[in-house]
C-alpha cells in the first residue's frame, strides 16, 4: 500500500494496467457468455426461452454478494486499522453491490412473470433480497452523513459488518422457509441441470465476477480521489489561516 507513490505522470483517469487486464478479460468473458447463453445453448424443456434469465439473474446475485463481502472485509479493517483505504473499498463494494442487487430484483420480476405467473410476491427470498437492498442503501446514506470523517467511517464500518447478516439469510432463505423459489439447483453432489445450461450459467458467473471486480476497483479510485480532494481542501484552509497569522505578525 505504501509503494504506490505516484510519479509526476499520474494518469488523469481511474484506469491502470490492472484494470486494463481485468477489463479485457471481462470483455472476452462477456462475449463468450452472451454468445453461448443467448445463442448457442438450447431452450429449456419446461421454461422455454425464459431459462436464459437464469444465466443473468443468478450471476448478478452472486456478484452482489461479492460486493457486499468486500464491504464486510473493508469494514472489519476500518475498525482494526483505522484505514481510509479500506473505508473507500468498503463503500465501493456496497455501491456496486447495490446496483447489482437492484438488477437482481428487476431480472427476478421479469423471470417470475412468465414462469410463476407474477412479477412480485412476498416470497421469503424476494423479501430477504428487498431487505438486503434497503439495508445497503441505508449503509450508503450513513456514508454521506455530515459527521467528522473518522467518526463517520467507524459508524459506517459497524453498519457494514451488521448488514452482512442479510447475505447468508438471503442465500439460505429457500432452505429455511417454504419458498416459491426453487431450492438450489447446483450442489456438489447432485446438479439438476443439463450440460449446456450449466455451462451458460458458469460462464455468466465468471463474466459477472470479473466485471464486478473491475468496477469495484474503478469505483474505489473515484472514492479515493474524493477523499484526497476533501483532505486537500481542509489542508488549504489550514494553510490559509497560517498565512493570515504570518501576515498579521509582519504588520
Amino acid at each position: 500500500m505504501t509503494s504506490i507513490a505516484v510519479p509526476p505522470s499520474a494518469p488523469e483517469h481511474t484506469g491502470s494496467r490492472l484494470t486494463r487486464v481485468l477489463g479485457a478479460a471481462t470483455a472476452v468473458s462477456w462475449v463468450v457468455w452472451l454468445t453461448y447463453g443467448l445463442v448457442l445453448s438450447p431452450a429449456d424443456v419446461v421454461q422455454s426461452e425464459s431459462v436464459r434469465l437464469f444465466y443473468l439473474h443468478v450471476p448478478l446475485a452472486l456478484s452482489a454478494y461479492l460486493g457486499f463481502t468486500v464491504t464486510l472485509v473493508g469494514s472489519i479493517l476500518v475498525l482494526r486499522k483505522n484505514s481510509a483505504f479500506w473505508d473507500q473499498m468498503a463503500g465501493a463494494g456496497a455501491e456496486v453491490g447495490l446496483v447489482l442487487a437492484g438488477l437482481v430484483l428487476v431480472t427476478g420480476a421479469l423471470w417470475g412473470r412468465p414462469t410463476w405467473g407474477t412479477y412480485w410476491v412476498w416470497d421469503p427470498r424476494i423479501t430477504a433480497t428487498t431487505l438486503l437492498f434497503l439495508v445497503y442503501l441505508g449503509y450508503l446514506v450513513v456514508r454521506r452523513l455530515d459527521l467528522d470523517a473518522e467518526v463517520r467511517a467507524r459508524r459506517a464500518a459497524v453498519f457494514g459488518i451488521v448488514a452482512f447478516i442479510n447475505v447468508p439469510i438471503t442465500r439460505y432463505s429457500v432452505q429455511i422457509w417454504n419458498s416459491l423459489h426453487q431450492e438450489a439447483t447446483l450442489s456438489l453432489t447432485d446438479t439438476e441441470m443439463d450440460g449446456s445450461q450449466l455451462t451458460s450459467f458458469a460462464l455468466g458467473a465468471i463474466a459477472m465476477a470479473l466485471f464486478t471486480t473491475w468496477l469495484i476497483i474503478h469505483r474505489f479510485r473515484v472514492g479515493w480521489l474524493e477523499y484526497e480532494l476533501d483532505r486537500s481542501g481542509l489542508e488549504s484552509a489550514i494553510l490559509e489561516r497560517r498565512g493570515e497569522r504570518t501576515a498579521t505578525e509582519v504588520v
Binding site: A5, V6, P11, R231
Partner: peptide, 26 residues
C-alpha cells in the same frame, strides 16, 4: 453506472494534484 464512474474519475483526477493521486496505478 460504468459511464458515471469513469467520467467522475476523470473529472476528479484533474482536480487532485498529481502527487496525491495514490492508488491510481497497479
Amino acid at each position: 453506472y460504468v459511464g458515471w464512474t469513469l467520467r467522475r474519475g476523470r473529472a476528479l483526477s484533474r482536480q487532485v494534484p498529481a502527487d496525491r493521486r495514490r492508488f491510481l496505478r497497479d
